[in-house]
Every structure is written in C-alpha cells, then in structure tokens.
Design a protein around this nucleic acid. Structure first.
Lengths: 99, 99
DNA sequence: TTCGTAGTTCGTAAGATGACGAATATCATA
DNA sequence: TATGATATTCGTCATCTTACGAACTACGAA
C-alpha cells in the first residue's frame, strides 16, 4: 500500500528512461547500426567504436536494461539485436511527444 | 587545424545531446506543458512541479542550453517558450532515427 | 529610497556515469 | 585437460548530475 504520491506520470518516466539510454553518442551509434542490420556481434562493434571493450559492455548493458536491445550468447560470441517491441513503443512515445 | 579524428557523427552527437535534455522526467513534464500552451512562466511551473525553485531554474537552464526552449524576462516574471526551430529539428532527427 | 516579488546563482553534498585495465567466466577445440 | 577466443564483471578514478537552502540580482511600487 504505497502512500507516496507519484511525482511524474508513467509516460514522463518512460520517455525520460528511454531518452537517457539515447543520451550518449556511442549508444546512438550502436542503435543505428543495429537498426540497420537487425543484429550484430559485440566484437564487430568493438572494432569500429573508439572505446575499450569493457566500456562497450557497459553501454550495451545500459541499452539492455532500458529494454532497447537484447543479447544472445552464441559461443564464443555475443549477438545483440534491437528489441522490436520496445523500439516501437519508444518510437510511438517520441512521435506523440513531438506532436 | 584540428588533428583529432571525430569520434561520432554530428547527427549522433545531436541526438545524444537532445536526448540528454529529455532524460529527466521533470524536463519531460516542462516540455509537455510548453508544447501544449506555447509559453508559460517559471512561477506557474514551480507551483505544479515537486522540486525547489532553484532546482527548477537548473532544469530550465539545461533545456535552454540544449536549445529546446528560450526564456524571456517580463518583469517581474520570466516567460519560457519552446524553441520551435530546434523542436522541429529534434522531431525530424528522432523520426529519422526510429525509421 | 526602501520594500517586496520573482528568479537566478552559489555552495555543497550525495549519488550516478563513463572511462580504463585487470581479473574472471564460458565454452569449443587441440 | 589445457588453451585460446570472446565477453563480462570488478575495482578505481574523475567528472557530471541532481537536489537543496542561502545569498544575490532586478525591477516596479509604495
């Protein structure tokens, strides 16, 4: 039984959460790549992006936790794809937000 | 003569910058309000939002520096409006980003 | 000129973020 | 079983963010 009043609407929270995930250029680059070719491997991204491997893992984790991508281990590689359901959700939220 | 290689494209940087500005629910709320009624005063927002006055000023500054809003002093009040040019820019960037 | 209203800026504290290399985990293959 | 390839997690550090109240600024009205 929560007594606290909600400070913001669900929609506001969602837009903020997803926007945060888009708030770093390397994450934008990752999503652009994934949305272009549906899937790709950590290693392929690591070759192209100007950051350390461990940093890439961190950014992928942020995107995963925001629900924008999903990872799948395909030993010895890890394959990442767009989470289409949430992708479409965000798309709708953004379009609605900007009129 | 810059020798450094650019790490990210201008578009990636822009999307990240604007997304950052949208990355807090109170800023989403502010923009929703402004886009609904074109302009409003600091004081009116302060009455509605669950944050201190000084914190509101900080958030408005973030939005101003991102170029999403513009402020105008109308003594003794300050009036804020959407920056329509950039609003449309972001809208286009986002729509393009999500296909 | 003094006062009151409306905002902004300053100072500060707590917590989140982004970066890296080192250490660790996983699993196929030699 | 030992090795190698591929990622992730850990530990650490510097920086940024968010929040607040106090101090300050600006300006019209008394």
């Amino acid at each position: 039984m929560p007594t606290e009043t909600k400070k913001y609407t669900d929609k506001q929270e969602l837009i903020a959460k997803f926007s945060n995930a888009l708030g770093h250029p390397v994450r934008v680059a990752i999503l652009q790549q994934l949305s272009k070719q549906s899937c790709c491997f950590h290693g392929d991204m690591a070759e192209v992006l100007p950051i350390a491997n461990s940093t890439l893992s961190q950014h992928l984790k942020v995107l995963r936790e925001a629900g924008l991508i999903q990872g799948e281990i395909d030993p010895p590689k890890t394959k990442y794809c767009i989470n289409k359901e949430n992708w479409n959700l965000v798309k709708g939220l953004m379009i609605g937000f900007f009129d």
